[in-house]
Design a binder for these strands. Sequence first.
DNA 1: TATGAATGAGGATTCATTCAT
DNA 2: TATGAATGAATCCTCATTCAT
Lengths: 219, 219, 219, 219
Amino acid sequence: MSERDEGQLVGTFPSIPKQIRAQQKRLALLESGRSLFIKKGYEQTTAKDIASYAGVATGTFYRYFSDKRQLLLALLEDKMEKLMPPVPNWMHRNPEQLLASLLENYNNSLEAIGIHRVLPELLPKDPELSEVMLEARKSLHARIYKGLQSAKDEGLTWKDLDLDIVAWTIILMVENSPEKAEQSGSPLEYDEMAKVICRLVFPPQIMEKLCVSKAESKR
Amino acid sequence: MSERDEGQLVGTFPSIPKQIRAQQKRLALLESGRSLFIKKGYEQTTAKDIASYAGVATGTFYRYFSDKRQLLLALLEDKMEKLMPPVPNWMHRNPEQLLASLLENYNNSLEAIGIHRVLPELLPKDPELSEVMLEARKSLHARIYKGLQSAKDEGLTWKDLDLDIVAWTIILMVENSPEKAEQSGSPLEYDEMAKVICRLVFPPQIMEKLCVSKAESKR
Amino acid sequence: MSERDEGQLVGTFPSIPKQIRAQQKRLALLESGRSLFIKKGYEQTTAKDIASYAGVATGTFYRYFSDKRQLLLALLEDKMEKLMPPVPNWMHRNPEQLLASLLENYNNSLEAIGIHRVLPELLPKDPELSEVMLEARKSLHARIYKGLQSAKDEGLTWKDLDLDIVAWTIILMVENSPEKAEQSGSPLEYDEMAKVICRLVFPPQIMEKLCVSKAESKR
Amino acid sequence: MSERDEGQLVGTFPSIPKQIRAQQKRLALLESGRSLFIKKGYEQTTAKDIASYAGVATGTFYRYFSDKRQLLLALLEDKMEKLMPPVPNWMHRNPEQLLASLLENYNNSLEAIGIHRVLPELLPKDPELSEVMLEARKSLHARIYKGLQSAKDEGLTWKDLDLDIVAWTIILMVENSPEKAEQSGSPLEYDEMAKVICRLVFPPQIMEKLCVSKAESKR
DNA sequence: TATGAATGAGGATTCATTCAT
DNA sequence: TATGAATGAATCCTCATTCAT
């Protein structure tokens, strides 16, 4: 143990500041947990697995997290906020393009995190976690709902638009698109999805206008 | 339980024949497994749990199933076929009504089974199961696709209808509707969902025609 | 069940007398136990195995035997007596021939029984059984000892013959000869073994005399 | 236990280094297994038993051994080599003395190990183990055979000596002597056994010569 | 603070034995 | 008397968590 530092004389940093090293270890564990959860599922991943994949000892795991579950919650918290897309402004520009990029962005972040895959395994038995996720989803729903609401107020949408169901449909498509991509093998057709969503929201003639005007404004 | 015996009046059999009793026990275990899987998740449910919830001893479980996983597979096989809805014939009658009833039926069966909730927990670690489910989903997709295809061929749909994505969206809505109902607390709005789907598929003027003609034909 | 007897009219034996059938069942179980014990070892053999190999139901086993162990004891008792060879009379005839045939006989009975193979597994944990076996062995030892004793009294043996050790050596050879045969692959060389034993007991000149006189008496 | 530390005076290490402690634990488990196997038989001994008799928790057992069987194999490997006696050189000195001491040595090691008692229980169901033991026995046989062969080549033995059977008889005597001692209650008469064996191998006049010359050479 | 050996509760599974039919 | 399904205690083994170093 001591030899490791022998070469360090004057002028070298005696060590990376403790807090930072600890932080790195914590991150390593988080990342290790994330990737093992995704690879093997939550239950199949043991604390020991996570520790050794992160290159630390079992006991060290418990210095940073009280528990496997807590690591998962930390992962969620860490990443959740990044998953909140902005309220779309449907008048802003060509809505299909807008949606396509929103979809792509959201999907990328989601994929970057990936923990959504283990959630179904846990929700039934962990009401707190369930609550957390439900909140997140509600908040996402609210965001989309709000965007749709203003579009509807502007008279842009189908008159009888059921905001709730459409918002929910959009969320479904977004959340499940990674899986779809996997199964179909083809890269995601974000614009196809966007087209579908637009059709749900805007009558054809409005779509045309929106596109035209946006196209014009681009000039 | 008691209704089951209603038909038995005078001269009832002193005992239910062995095979039937065994079959009942098997079914009790299946049902017990199903309900515990849904309630507590697959991993959290032990063979002992399933047995005692079914009112039998641990060892009895192993007379009927080689293990927990096999019980799950039996559940799937037992029920899978019931989940295949007929290819919808869009010209048959008012498509919204058609869809609403299809949705309701499918949803009822799905709910009656309920195992779809434990699948996400298992798929990552059980490739065989994964395969089974993927096949089921593909077959469902194909069925819907086919229905849409004929509608498109008839010129009933949007000209640029992306059959694949729309079929997939419909599946998503169907599969997730139970969850939605739970979260919103309100009973499922099948007709709202049907309306949304119809909007994805049929241009408004066609919808009108379809509805009118069907309404007329009803007279 | 009932059809089985339908063909029986007047004059046929209504059934084999009950006691005899029961006895047959008992024997079937004994034989089944014996052969499974030999094949798979005592611990590895379950009561159920024994019953089904004997073609009866599990419960039936317990009508005839209180227990796996008791079946084994029954096997031992049943067969033990058959294992007691007569006290050899060394003056009777050519001792090598005498021994060779004794060895062969004993070995054949032992092999026919075969349970000696499971005993080592049980002796440590079953003092009663241990006792039984020890007695049997002592009795065998006594028998051989007695034969040697009279030979020694007649002045036929080495003067300093250690009866105990020689008797014991003989038992060892007898008991282990089946295994030896198995391993060497060759059929047992009973006469070689007999020759060795004779050398242990008789000085060469006596051997010669014995053989000569026996050979003469044969004329 | 305490003698082991005798050399440590002032400044003893506050703790035995990890590897050594682990090794000790492993040895404790081995010893515990050995003694329980002997006392209760292999099947009757559970991993839990072994662990608690060794003063550790159940789980610890599984850190050091993958299961009971592996512990047994380790015992065998650990000790097997110690059981290989040197090829006896019959001309070296008084053969009776030579044999007696060989017997005593071998017997002591065998006794110190003691696992030979559980083997019969396992051999039928564990072909690999069976193989290992068969090899060991063959090697022992070969060793004795070789010694006898050279003696025969020197013309020291009976002309018609059947090397195979005699070697086998010697092995039997050696392997079973502990049991004999137990049953007779008396300490082992190694010299009596040695005398018996010598009688199997050497004609009386040769024995005399050998003894005389050795006695002389001692002067 | 880091380590990883040790712990032991708890899940999966088997099987001797009972008992309703 | 025969059956074989049912029982549940007892085994094997894993893994979350602790703790001495």
